[in-house]
Simulated assay, not measured.
Amino acid sequence: MSALQRQPHFAVALDTPEYTPDAPGPFDAAHYTRLARLAERGTLDFVTLGDTFARPGPDALAVLARVAPHTAHIGLVPTVTTTHTEPFHVATAVQTLDWVSRGRAGWRAEVSRTPAEAALFGRRPAAPADALWREATDVADVAGRLWDSWEDDAEIRDAATGRFIDRGKLHYVDFRGTSSTGEPFSVRGPSIVPRPPQGRPVIVVDATEDAARETAAARADIALVRAEDPDTATAARAELRARAEELGRDPDRLRVLASLPVELPAPGDAAGLAELLTDWHGTEAADGFHLRPADPVRDLARLVDGTVPVLRRRGLLRRSYQGTTLRDHLGLARPASRYATGKAS
Rank of each mutant, 00 (worst) to 15 (best):
P261Q: 12
G57T: 07
L316I: 13
D299K: 04
R163T: 09
R313S: 11
P56R: 09
T82A: 05
Q198S: 11
T20L: 11
A91E: 04
V67H: 00
A235R: 13
G25V: 12
A105V: 06
L120Q: 10
A274D: 05
A301F: 04
E40C: 13
R327T: 00
A266R: 13
D299V: 08
A23Y: 02
T83Y: 08
D287G: 11
W147F: 01
A143D: 06
I222M: 03
V139K: 07
L291M: 00
L303G: 08
D328A: 05
A220T: 07
G199D: 08
V204A: 10
G25Q: 09
R314F: 08
R249W: 00
P201L: 00
R292G: 03
A54D: 12
L44M: 09
A36R: 01
R243C: 06
I74V: 11
T71H: 04
G342T: 14
R113E: 13
A227Y: 03
E284D: 14
P251Y: 02
A116F: 11
R298K: 10
A336F: 13
P78W: 02
A274H: 05
H171S: 07
G248W: 04
A159E: 15
T278S: 01
V204Y: 07
Y19F: 11
A127V: 12
A235Q: 13
D250S: 07
H31G: 04
L49A: 10
A266V: 14
Y19N: 10
G323V: 01
H171M: 07
R66Q: 15
T33K: 05
T83Q: 12
H329C: 02
P335F: 14
R41E: 15
E209D: 15
V310D: 03
D229N: 12
A217L: 00
I203A: 08
T92R: 13
G323I: 02
H84F: 14
D231L: 15
Y321M: 04
P58D: 15
R302T: 04
E228K: 14
T114K: 03
L257A: 01
L44N: 02
D166T: 02
S345D: 14
A220D: 08
E214I: 12
G168I: 12
Q322Y: 12
G103Y: 00
